[in-house]
């Protein structure tokens, strides 16, 4: 090894406890810092907050009201009586918030990796997997806050679940949000040419949303198209919506829980392994021959 060192005085400044490994408290401080920052950013960006609510509310106020008579829903679990169409699509709209918000925050993590905020995060001495998971958790937390604001507005609109359902749904929202954030990050890490959010909307978000029981029950899809039904069954978002739907009524759809948990584990692991901060920059440098 032919390195040629510089000359100079040896520092007298003590190294900052650098030999002492981080303890649990330090990890929690790190997680708290990331959560607080994400929350502050969200509160400071009112436009983002409002736009995140407008989309599901439009579906609830306009689409659901308009299609109430056309798209009747029979009595299917977890419902024990006929329900309004607005009630039926509410879990799907919660899933929609998680889907859009999760994908958006995950994509920004990938495409902003050479930008300021992600750089600051990634040069932290904590393990990279921990930083990425913490960032995902922060994104999920913000998404869940949006869901509850939506549910509050929906409540005033007359779309109500049993009171205990608002508590039971929290873990379902958390797990589903984590799965969708992980999926977003995993997809972005794998697909090099995925350059903007509209592309993701067309090829990932909309197909996932429409090929699910978010807007209509699966038995209706099965009646009209067995192929589409199979596609819906292969769609992880299907299970997220059902997990949320059952949780609103204090029930656990075990198949959905297992599928969502397994997908969360796979997507998170894939995202962490595939995450490469230089990937986005690599493409750009090849294309433009930019500064090295």
């Amino acid at each position: 090894m032919n390195t040629q060192p510089a000359t100079g005085a040896t520092t007298t400044r003590p190294v900052n406890a650098a030999s002492k490994p981080f303890g649990l408290r330090s990890y929690l401080v790190c997680l708290k810092g990331i959560l607080v920052r994400e929350g502050l950013r969200f509160l400071n960006q009112r436009e983002r907050f409002i736009s995140s609510l407008v989309r599901p509310l439009l579906w609830l106020f306009i689409f659901a009201a308009g299609f109430r008579q056309v798209l009747g829903v029979s009595i299917i679990p977890p419902y024990k009586t006929y329900v309004l169409y607005e009630v039926y699509i509410s879990p799907g709209l919660c899933g929609m918030i998680l889907l859009f918000s999760g994908m958006q925050s995950s994509l920004s993590m990938v495409y902003d990796r050479e930008m300021g905020n992600m750089r600051t995060l990634l040069v932290s001495p904590f393990p990279r997997w921990y930083l990425l998971v913490s960032k995902l958790l922060a994104g999920v937390t913000v998404s869940i806050a949006q869901v509850y604001v939506f549910l509050a507005v929906a409540w005033f609109w007359g779309v109500k679940a049993p009171p205990i359902g608002y508590v039971f749904v929290l873990p379902a929202l958390f797990l589903s949000g984590l799965m969708l954030c992980g999926l977003g990050m995993f997809l972005s890490s794998m697909i090099k040419q995925l350059e903007n959010f509209s592309g993701v909307m067309n090829f990932v978000i909309f197909p996932m949303y429409f090929a699910s029981p978010a807007l209509y029950p699966l038995w209706r899809i099965q009646e009209s198209s067995p192929l589409l039904y199979q596609i819906c069954l292969a769609n992880p978002f299907t299970y997220a919506v059902e997990l949320i739907r059952f949780a609103f009524y204090g029930q656990v759809d075990w198949i959905s829980l297992v599928v969502v948990a397994a997908c969360t584990a796979v997507f998170l692991a894939g995202a962490i392994i595939a995450y490469d901060p230089s990937r986005g920059l690599m493409n750009r440098k090849q294309d433009t021959g930019g500064n090295a």
Binding site: M1, N2, T3, Q4, P5, A6, T7, G8, A9, T10, T11, T12, R13, K285, Q286, G289, A292
Partner: peptide
Amino acid sequence: KRALSDVSFAIAPG
């Protein structure tokens, strides 16, 4: 596109 080629050096503390 090659950005760095066999770069070696070291710097002393302080």
